[in-house]
């Protein structure tokens, strides 16, 4: 059923779900929402499960005309929300009526916002997912970001008929200086001084940041003199910090499957939601943690989400 007409698409707005799996060996990257925490909460706020497709809105959100009654929720980056010109709260259920104009303004803090809708956005499932793969020109809405005039549909689902709200203490705050926890490897043995540099100096987010990767600028993360500048191309996962020949690290995101550069460390999964929210000019500090520590954080993160979900959905 018709949900929205796109009046203005925003800077880069795409349909995303948790992502594609099982096609890495054919060169199909995982894609999907970058800030998993915010996207998942948005879905719970309108009564969806976490698989439902949402809009990922980068830097500046869209202006949308509402076709039919629905519930929506906006989460993630701090982006002012207006319905017919009136400011509305984020991180809670909002009810919209036919003819309403929903507008998501440019970010104040953070970088990516999420808009969930009753039933989830209705685009074809391709290779098991509704996520847009911009580089591959498929998935989501015709394999591309939204443009003016697009019509977005939603899947049929019942309304909550109540307002859910994420308690303020559970809402993330977005800083301009962000600590990112990382586990050494896969090629930490290719670096000696370079590892110290990586873990002990700040890096600035460059303006070259998209869903493929987030390029950083800072002190040179040099390889040992006796190792090759590139490695035999191998699998790569979101969070991997790869170091190209200019020694400026790149945090790999969700539109890559293989890479040929050495990776001194990998940002842990739970902190990728933070990477999604950093923008040009922000700084990051990598903190070295052990695999055991990383696994403990994964479990804590999962437990926290389970608690939030059960509190929201009572």
């Amino acid at each position: 059923m018709k949900a929205f007409k796109v009046i203005d698409p925003g800077a880069q707005t795409t349909v995303q779900d948790p992502g594609r799996s099982r096609y890495l060996q054919f060169g199909i990257p995982v894609c999907g929402t970058l800030d998993k925490f915010s996207a998942e909460i948005a879905n719970y706020l309108v009564g969806n499960n976490k698989q439902a497709a949402v809009l990922e809105m980068t830097f500046m959100g869209p202006k949308l005309e509402v076709f039919s009654q629905m519930e929506v929720a906006v989460t993630g980056a701090e982006m002012p929300i207006k319905v017919n010109g009136n400011e509305m709260p984020a991180w809670q259920t909002l009810t919209l009526s036919p003819g309403d104009i929903l507008q998501i303004l440019p970010v104040k803090t953070g970088f990516r916002g999420y808009l969930a809708i009753t039933g989830g956005f209705d685009v074809p499932k391709i290779m098991g997912s509704r996520s847009t793969y911009v580089g591959g020109n498929f998935g989501g809405l015709e394999g591309r970001p939204l443009k003016s005039g697009d019509i977005l549909g939603r899947l049929e689902s019942s309304f909550l008929g109540q307002i859910r709200q994420l308690p303020v203490e559970d809402q993330p705050t977005f800083l301009t200086s962000v600590p990112l926890r990382a586990v050494p490897g896969p090629q930490d043995d290719f670096f000696d001084q370079g590892l110290d540099v990586l873990f002990n100096s700040p890096f600035t987010v460059s303006n070259k940041a998209d869903r493929m990767g987030c390029r950083l600028e800072g002190s040179a993360v040099e390889l040992k003199p006796d190792v090759p500048q590139s490695i035999i191309s191998e699998p790569i996962l979101p969070g991997a910090i790869q170091v190209p020949p200019d020694f400026q690290p790149i945090i790999v995101l969700v539109e890559m499957t293989v890479g040929g550069y050495a990776k001194p460390a990998t940002v842990i999964g739970p902190d990728l939601s933070l990477v999604a929210q950093i923008k040009s000019g922000d700084t990051v500090n990598f903190q070295k943690i052990s695999l055991t520590e990383a696994h403990r954080i994964c479990k804590d993160t999962k437990d926290k989400m389970a608690r939030i979900k059960s509190q929201l959905t009572v």
Binding site: A182, V183, P184, G185, P186, Q187, E234, P235, I236, L237, G239, A240, K263, T266, V267, I268, G269, L291, A294, H295, I297, C298
Partner: peptide, 9 residues
């Protein structure tokens, strides 16, 4: 080789 908290090479 370790690739973060959920990848092994």
């Amino acid at each position: 080789r370790l690739m973060g908290d959920s990848g092994l090479l």
